[in-house]
Computed example of a mutant assay.
Amino acid sequence: MKLDILIKNGLVADTDGNDYVNRSIGVVGNRIVDLSDADASQAETVIDAAGCIVLPGLIDFHAHVFHGGTAISVNPDVVGLPNGVTGFVDAGSSGWVNYPLFRQAVVASSTVRMKSYLNVVNVGLATLGGGPTGYLENTNPANYNVEQIARTLRENADNILGLKLRYSQDIAKGKQYASDPFQATVALARQLNTSLCVHVTDALQPADELIHHFAADDVWAHCFHGTGHAILNPQGEVFAAVKAAQARGVIFDCSNGVAHFDFHIASRALEQGFYPDIISTDLTRRNSLRTDKVYSLLHVMSKYLNMGMSFFDVLRAVTTTPARLMKMAGQIGTLAPGAFADIAIVKMRKERIVFEDTRGVKIEGDRYLDNCATLCNGEIVYRRLRF
């Protein structure tokens, strides 16, 4: 069997063994193949990855990529592929009204792989923010169209992972709803037998109370925010209920964003062994490729490396864990033979770098991950001449 692409001389990151393996990766069509069944000497294209680390294509589990359909969304191919990202989960940019457009215009036409959460708000995040530029979504449960939400979930079960709610005081403050949006969304998710992704910043209730309503594979987004009720108790310890929730399978996603990351919260949590299950960006037009607070998934990953997380813990949080939640374990997030040929070739640059949180606090690091080449579905979609 002749190879279409051979990647040689790189260190392949093995998340199962927590080690680097010096081996080649072969690609035929859109799949990774077992080199024992292939003729590596006859590859059509050879990429010499000497000095590089070969990774599964990265997955950004929380971003806003309804490009052209919402005011905040970015083009997933533009922001993802040059940065080693071959998979995205859109975090509720669309509701049932505009989800068909999102699926047709973005999901079906993008090079990157994509899954999504469906916003319980009818039009999702079509516009966002106060003042003359937009308005915050209406999360009044009285406006939830349960029939249409159920229908959209049913007809798009291959793509939609669950329901999305933004639950914070800036949205609900001063509103007199007959029922609480969070409780109503939890009840709806259970009724429809689906999962939740909840934006929890400055919530109306403390974290150790809210967390009891989350089930395994429900996602607590922005877990290291520092606005209002956070995951730390008054003594600076991660709430016991939060730790217990992670142990029973609740997913904690850092979902960085420009307004949802606090070094104090994150550092205290990491010191206590509470690591994010998922590392993601919350990319929008405001922060994508623009600020040191987010910039790209590789930039956010590099921050956690400099905060003390191991390379392999960081890697699992952008490959194997999101792949499982996307119901694509074994197909993406891995370099095993038979998987889709989604691959990132990166270098660990040993240079000074500065990271900044929401409050403007900065820390200095000494290394960062830099992308050199990206393959998506067996195609070279980004490559530098020299690595």
Score class of each variant (00 low, 15 high):
Ile7Lys: 01
Lys8Asn: 07
Arg23Ser: 10
Ser36Tyr: 13
Gln42Asn: 14
Ile47Gln: 08
Gly51Arg: 06
Leu58His: 00
Phe61Glu: 01
Ala63Arg: 03
His67Phe: 15
Gly68Met: 07
Val74Tyr: 13
Asn83Asp: 08
Val85Pro: 00
Gly95Phe: 00
Arg103Pro: 00
Ala105His: 14
Ser110Asn: 06
Lys115Gln: 08
Asn119Val: 01
Asn122Thr: 09
Gly130Val: 04
Asn138Asp: 15
Asn140Val: 02
Pro141Arg: 10
Pro141Thr: 02
Ala142Thr: 09
Tyr144Ala: 02
Asn145Val: 02
Glu147Cys: 06
Gln148Thr: 06
Gln148Cys: 08
Asn156Leu: 08
Asn159Ala: 10
Ile160Pro: 00
Leu161Ala: 06
Ile171Tyr: 09
Lys175Ala: 11
Pro181His: 08
Ala184Leu: 10
Ala189Met: 03
Thr201Glu: 13
Asp208Ala: 06
Phe214Gln: 02
Asp217Ser: 12
Val219Ile: 15
Ala221Glu: 01
Ala221Lys: 00
Ala221Met: 07
Thr227Met: 14
His229Phe: 14
Gln235His: 13
Val242Pro: 07
Lys243Phe: 07
Ile251Met: 07
Phe252Gln: 03
Val258Gly: 09
Ala259Pro: 00
Ile278Tyr: 01
Thr281Cys: 15
Asp282Phe: 04
Arg286Asn: 12
Leu298Lys: 06
Val300Cys: 12
Lys303Gly: 00
Lys303Asn: 01
Lys303Cys: 02
Thr321Gln: 14
Met326Pro: 00
Ala336Asn: 12
Pro337Asp: 11
Lys350Tyr: 05
Arg352Ser: 13
Ile353Met: 05
Gly360His: 05
Lys362Ser: 09
Asn377Gly: 14
Gly378Val: 00
Glu379Gln: 15
